[in-house]
Amino acid sequence: MMNHTLKNPCKVSPGTIIKGKWHGNQYTIIKELGFGANGVVYLAKGRNGQVALKMSTNGMSITSEVNVLKSFAKVQGTSTLGPSLLDVDDWEVNRSKISFYVMDYLQGIDFLSFIEQKGKSWMPILILQLLNDLANLHDNGWVFGDLKPENLIVTGPPPKIRCIDVGGTTVRGRAIKEFTEFYDRGYWGLGSRKAEPSYDLFAVAMIMINTAYPKRFKKTIGGLKQLTEAICQKPELTKFNKVMIKALQGHYSTAIQMRTELLAKLTQPKQDDRKQPSAVPITKKSNKSVKSSPPLSRQHYRKTKKRKGWMDFFVILALLGALYGFYIFTKLL
């Protein structure tokens, strides 16, 4: 019922002026940016320049998205998670009421087109950025939920990945609000639909698969087997297959774990790929945690950190010594 009537009132033509009932702000529609199950997003001109305006006849979904964006705004340093919220209001037209909210307009290209244009080498880099943002999101008690390339754009330069649709963002521990089958671990029979960090990390691995299969694929036998085969058939993915398979199995409990291991794969010298066995004890070259499990590589990380810590210590000591010497020197004069 709702869905039949949903699309029409929200379809407005360029030039339409949207006036808020409560706050009185006016927005002129420039063009449509996209639409989803819960409404349409437009590029619009507000008093202070271009904005993105999302409207829906389903006031509930608008309100709950606004709640998510508001809670992002409260947390320090989460500005990269989603666009920032500028206004929330209702637009009364033809005796019906359409709820809308206004956010920053993030100008960029969608994730898959960006990789197609700039080359596959960008894929892991953007994924690293995404994992960082997800770690931040998870730390603040949220799970993104409906993570898919359509909800990611790359802004810049410098290229930076941004999440644009918070419609599926769910409080940790609850049931995922919105999902898309291909990126949903429940669909593949690989886990529950509980909002936990590993749910998003599964989707990240599926996004990586998606870059090699732009048209996606259907579930045949399902499960880990089908996905593993899909990874093994594409040389650009095999390099990361260990990390991806661990993510698909839900073995990472934090985004940072996955990020650390992905980064290790990337920085690993190419010729060392196979030759250096795991039996070799940890040497100075910090890059080869090829076979190591997550705790090992973290230890590794701590080691390099410790070494750096000593360096800092000596530099500061020398500096203080010099200053003290100078102080004594001036006193003596």
Partner: peptide, 22 residues
Amino acid sequence: TMEDLPPEKRGEVMEIVDELGE
């Protein structure tokens, strides 16, 4: 109804709706 509340208040009510749905 909920729709007649100003958007700010609506958010608080929505949290209750979400909580109940869970």
